[in-house]
Design a protein around this nucleic acid. Structure first.
Lengths: 210, 210
DNA sequence: TGTACATCAGTGAACGCGCGTTCACTGATGTAC
DNA sequence: TGTACATCAGTGAACGCGCGTTCACTGATGTAC
């Protein structure tokens, strides 16, 4: 029988983990402050007083660092959505989830763009279906839709099952978030009202015929 | 009284216009074939057998060229949506418009991304409100919503006027298109069905209470 | 019709920059006897 | 406890690349007399 390796962490490994974390933190800060375009090995190294070459002790290259901070971004997005009060009526809850998604995008626009303007690491529809609340933003959305259907508030329709409904909800909030941080950035309009209206409209579409 | 300068075009101006067009065509092709990342002054010049320096006779710099082909992209998107049969019932028509938007994005993904991942030249909400069918994709969408409301099929609600409804519709199709060409690129799922369901769901939300 | 000149379109080479990555190296830390 | 050695974290300099833009220039085209 083997020991789980989780417990035995040597001082060396602790140090390495800390440095890895420092690298990612620096990368995160650069993206937040100056956008994804400013993220370079040199910039990261400078920020933590390393030479660029030193980073290769901890990561295989730039892509791996980007991948790691995208994963962190996913967790952050999850945190935004998981903080929403689950006690509310399902329609309100779903709307609040959308709002949280948009809030993440507007508060961390560069982060959001980094995560969502390049292709994600592949994952099948089945895998997406499996992931429930714990861990991913999509899972939270999925659980909400499931709950709405179970409560009889939302209604499955032909060609519009729970998974597809979730995809649609995601696309709705993603479109609102994306337009806002890219094409409509700086537009003098009342996004808050617009988003609320759009989310309410989407919710009406989900409702079961009375 | 002055003559309109539109008519008198010298041979010189004609030549210049043709070269300008050739530059933009080359830029368009590069973006289509290799993505926005591959668009460089050198690449454009090479494709039309100029030296990079020569391009500065026709454009002030790279940004101006990008701006010009984004404008062209807007016209192309307009063409997609304007080709949709306006004779159908409004709900079908709106759905078909969404479909056309998504088709543009999937058939010209690099173009679409170039247009929609950087901020657009600013324009006020009033200007957007003014632009009707002739010219812009947003205008077409706006006209459709207006028609739906006029026919009593769609319903204006508190905080959800025609302009806001159009914004919501745009965000819906934009989210579907965007997810598809970025984060979900290559996912093994049935986008066609998903998009149809999402658009139908959005339409239901617009409907007037019976 | 011929000639002198001005305008024009376009070039070649360079400037200065930043990028990801590699590699031979060094000095410090840890280890074995 | 001291010494010899191996491992390790990190460096400095360079490689090779591509970028947008500038500038002095040239050869062709057009114009005026």
């Amino acid at each position: 029988m083997e020991f789980t390796s989780v417990e035995n962490i040597s001082p060396k490994e602790r140090r390495q983990a800390r440095t890895r974390e420092a690298i990612l933190e620096a990368a995160r800060e650069i993206v937040s402050e100056a956008g994804a375009g400013a993220l370079s090995m040199r910039a990261i190294a400078q920020r933590i007083d390393y030479s660029p070459a030193g980073l290769y002790e901890y990561f295989d290259g730039k892509d791996e660092i980007i991948g790691a901070i995208c994963a962190e971004g996913g967790q952050q997005l999850f945190a935004y959505m998981n903080a929403v009060d689950k006690g509310q009526p399902i329609a309100d809850y779903l709307q609040a989830l959308g709002h949280a998604y948009i809030r993440f995008a507007t508060e961390q626009p560069d982060y959001f763009l980094l995560m969502f303007t390049s292709p994600a690491p592949l994952q099948s529809a089945e895998e997406m279906a499996v992931q429930s609340g714990e861990g991913s933003a999509f899972g939270i959305l999925l659980d909400a839709i499931r709950r709405g259907v179970a409560e009889g508030v939302f209604q499955q329709r032909a060609g519009f099952d729970v998974l597809t409904m979730t995809y649609a909800a995601w696309a709705m909030v993603h479109g609102l978030a994306m337009l806002r941080v890219t094409h409509l950035q700086g537009y003098p309009m009342d996004f808050e009202t617009g988003d609320l209206g759009a989310l309410a409209n989407f919710g009406r579409g989900l409702m079961a015929a009375h």
